[in-house]
């Protein structure tokens, strides 16, 4: 049952060097650089996103992910969910408005997989970049690199993905869209959605808590994914795998690494989900095909390399 969570809103990523990271997220992926704050964090967004920012880069000693934020309908929803998160047993912290430039009060909470998440109701709306809201043109001139249109989802690794499913489903109203089940019947991967997308966040079972697998940005077409692959070669960027297609979600995809070793994905298309849909299940015996539909073999680096 939907609980008023609308969409993924932002992700804060730790990088070893902010200027190098900008070459990746701004110049290669094509996000728009919005501004920098007093802490030196850099704010970016995909050009179609109406809110002020969706990606925050923070320079740190260890790459990885600080937190992912989801936008909720309004302050009443925020209040209600805050209470339910406390009742559910999460460690809940309130982050005052303005701690992220242009973002309202955030409610931060932890998950059994060891990640930090937030919900918030208000963020400054600066509109799509380079196009208006009345009689808008198809796209703005001046986009860079892969021309990613928005931050789409992330994949996270940690223990107790069942506990995290309970949290996201029962408290936040996400639905289980796709899953991987091992021969004993244990769920080892789960793809959750809060709308019609195949995934707004995904989790894979892993002994170390709080690990980051990738942040994903959406492109318009398969041709754009091939063009992204061309840019990865032209710029001699660290490639993980692709272009290829996933069995899970059926997205067309390519994976590569930022200069601090955080994995990025750009992708297009894939399955959709309505609230009355049963989860799509892949059996672990077919895991190779579930992950990379064409190769049908497992790629060790894709499964084990994390920040």
């Amino acid at each position: 049952m939907r609980k008023g969570v609308m969409r993924p809103g932002h992700i804060q990523i730790r990088v070893l060097d902010v200027e190098e990271a900008l070459k990746h997220y701004r110049d290669l992926i094509g996000l728009i650089e919005v501004e920098r704050d007093a802490q030196g964090r850099v704010y970016l967004k995909g050009w179609t996103e109406v809110d002020k920012f969706s990606v925050v880069l923070r320079e740190a000693d260890e790459p990885g992910m600080d937190f992912v934020g989801y936008k909720v309908l309004d302050n009443q929803t925020l209040e209600k969910l805050q209470g339910e998160l406390v009742e559910h047993g999460c460690n809940v912290e309130e982050i005052p408005a303005g701690e992220l430039n242009g973002c309202g009060r955030r409610i931060r909470f932890d998950s059994p997989t060891g990640h930090m998440f937030e919900i918030y109701a208000e963020k400054e709306q600066t509109g799509k970049w380079g196009v208006g809201n009345v009689n808008p043109e198809a796209w703005p001139r001046g986009l860079k690199g892969m021309k990613a249109t928005r931050f789409d989802h992330c994949l996270l690794y940690g223990p107790n993905i069942k506990g995290t499913l309970d949290l996201f489903r029962d408290v936040l109203g996400f639905e289980l869209a796709e899953q991987v089940i091992d021969p004993e019947g244990t769920r080892i991967a789960q793809f959750l959605t809060v709308g019609m997308k195949a995934h707004d966040v995904a989790f894979i079972d892993h002994p170390e808590p709080g690990k980051f697998h990738h942040a994903s940005f959406i492109l318009d077409t398969w041709e754009d994914v091939l063009r992204a692959a061309d840019l990865i070669s032209m710029e001699d960027v660290s490639l993980d795998i692709g272009p290829t297609r996933h069995g899970l979600t059926h997205g067309k995809t390519i994976y590569f690494f930022d200069p601090s070793g955080n994995r990025s994905e750009v992708f297009c298309d894939g399955d959709y989900h309505y609230p009355d849909h049963e989860p799509v299940t892949w059996k672990a015996e077919q895991l190779g095909k579930a992950i990379f539909y064409h190769d049908r073999v497992l790629n060790d680096r894709f499964l084990t390399v994390l920040t």
């Binding site: 080892i188 497992l298 084990t304």
Partner: peptide, 18 residues
């Protein structure tokens, strides 16, 4: 030293590329 996830354990019987 890589920690081994159940995702990988489930994959033991499958062909793997390194």
């Amino acid at each position: 030293q890589a920690p081994e996830s159940s995702y990988q354990q489930a994959a033991v019987a499958q062909p793997t590329v390194k």
